[in-house]
Amino acid sequence: MNIILNNRPETFSQSELTINELLQEKNFSFKMLVIKVNGILVKKGQYDSHIVKDGDDVTVLHLVSGG
């Protein structure tokens, strides 16, 4: 599948991935994330159930403490 991930086109051999699988594929290991798929918020409890499909626009923001 082809998706947009953080403004960039990305290709995966799988036809779909859960959010958690996508995070593992990309080695995103930060613990404080905000994820949007096609503009809609996906909360942490949905990371194993929400499916990312071909054509999706995914945003993964990672947040670290300090300010």
Binding site: M32, L33, K43, L61, L63
Partner: peptide, 14 residues
């Protein structure tokens, strides 16, 4: 300062 507060604000706004 805290990452969980940053996340809370962003999620609430989205």
């Amino acid at each position: 300062d805290l990452a969980e507060m940053k996340k809370m604000l962003i999620e609430t706004c989205i």
